[in-house]
Computed example of a mutant assay.
Amino acid sequence: MKTLVRLFLTLVCAAVAAVLYILLGSRTPVQRCCSAPALRDSPATARADSVRSFPGYSRVPDGKPLERARCRQCAIVSSSGQMLGSQLGQAIDGQECVLRMNHAPTAGYEQDVGARSTIRVVSHTSVPLLLGNQPYFFQQSQETLYFIWGPAKKMSREKMGSTYQALVKVMEKYPQLQIYTLTEEKMTYCDDVFQNETGKNRMKSGSFLSTGWFTMILAMELCEQICVFGMVSDSYCREKNHSSVPYHYFEKGRLDECRMYLTHEQARRAGHRFITEKAIFSRWAKRRNIVFNHPSWAGRRNI
């Protein structure tokens, strides 16, 4: 009789435990994009809210290095036509820091790309486009940090390169701005990373690094979690049924994205290696907390 009672109590306890497991499990919140743990290879003791110095980024005009706290969650917003109709604006603005590239606008595209711009990484060739719309970029974007990259002859602080001179004049007109340039050492470092990943010297191979390359490197330094919106994988444009979208979401009816990527990838000289860069990003995603969205794709161990 005692054996039967014990057996009955055991079954009752098991049933109760199963019910509790189901109830508690159903209350587990669904993780949002980029809500994963911090970078796997970052020190466990690192705090996102502690201010630190980031050498390689020189403030205009005093040359001081970048000093700020790291961002826990970052959105990198591609300028790709993939963003059109994405309805991702709210998700992008929900990230702690939002990184954009060159002169990509948000006005009129807020529903798809969001409205906030914490950081804008800009090629020296796009600086004139920002200067041509100063009220939009420099008066309204009070929270934005600008990071400008380019060759030494254009960006030199000591020799007052032409692009650097233009940035100094902007700072005189809008003293509230925060503009940084990449130092020569940082530019060399970015070249070295490309060579280490590909086995090819960037200059000898006739390659130009893209603004996306500098943006990703900056994001890996500043962000614990990176959510990339609108960037296709390295294999996307070789798939038979890939969609045809504008190269830039704000230049409808202009260049086709995949046609642009493939043309540059095959160029012998002066070509951006967009596809190669994305293959490298794919590999980095295996070591870092990087998530790709719209289209969604995963990093791979082998390129």
Rank of each mutant, 00 (worst) to 15 (best):
K153F: 11
V122K: 00
G81E: 11
P151L: 07
V121A: 05
C74A: 09
E67V: 10
Q139Y: 03
Q73G: 11
A75W: 12
A91I: 11
Q111G: 07
L177I: 04
Q111I: 07
P61C: 13
K159S: 07
G94N: 14
P61G: 12
G85R: 14
G63N: 14
M171E: 06
I179T: 03
Q87Y: 09
P135G: 09
G81I: 13
A107E: 15
Q165Y: 07
S126C: 01
S156Q: 11
S78N: 07
L99K: 02
T181K: 03
S80V: 07
K173W: 01
T183S: 15
S79C: 03
L84C: 07
Q111M: 09
G108E: 08
N133M: 02
Q111R: 14
I76R: 00
T106G: 05
L84T: 13
P135I: 07
P105S: 13
Y180G: 02
V121C: 07
Y164G: 04
T144Y: 06
G94T: 11
Q165M: 14
Y164Q: 05
V77P: 08
R116L: 06
I119H: 07
G63T: 12
A166S: 14
P135D: 09
A115I: 00
Y164K: 04
I119A: 02
K154C: 03
E96T: 07
L84I: 15
L130H: 02
W149L: 05
L182G: 03
C97G: 07
V170H: 00
L99P: 03
D93V: 08
C71E: 03
P135E: 11
S123N: 14
P175Y: 03
Q139C: 02
L84P: 02
S79Q: 07
M83R: 14
S117Y: 00
M83P: 08
M101R: 14
K173C: 02
G108S: 05
D93G: 09
R68P: 06
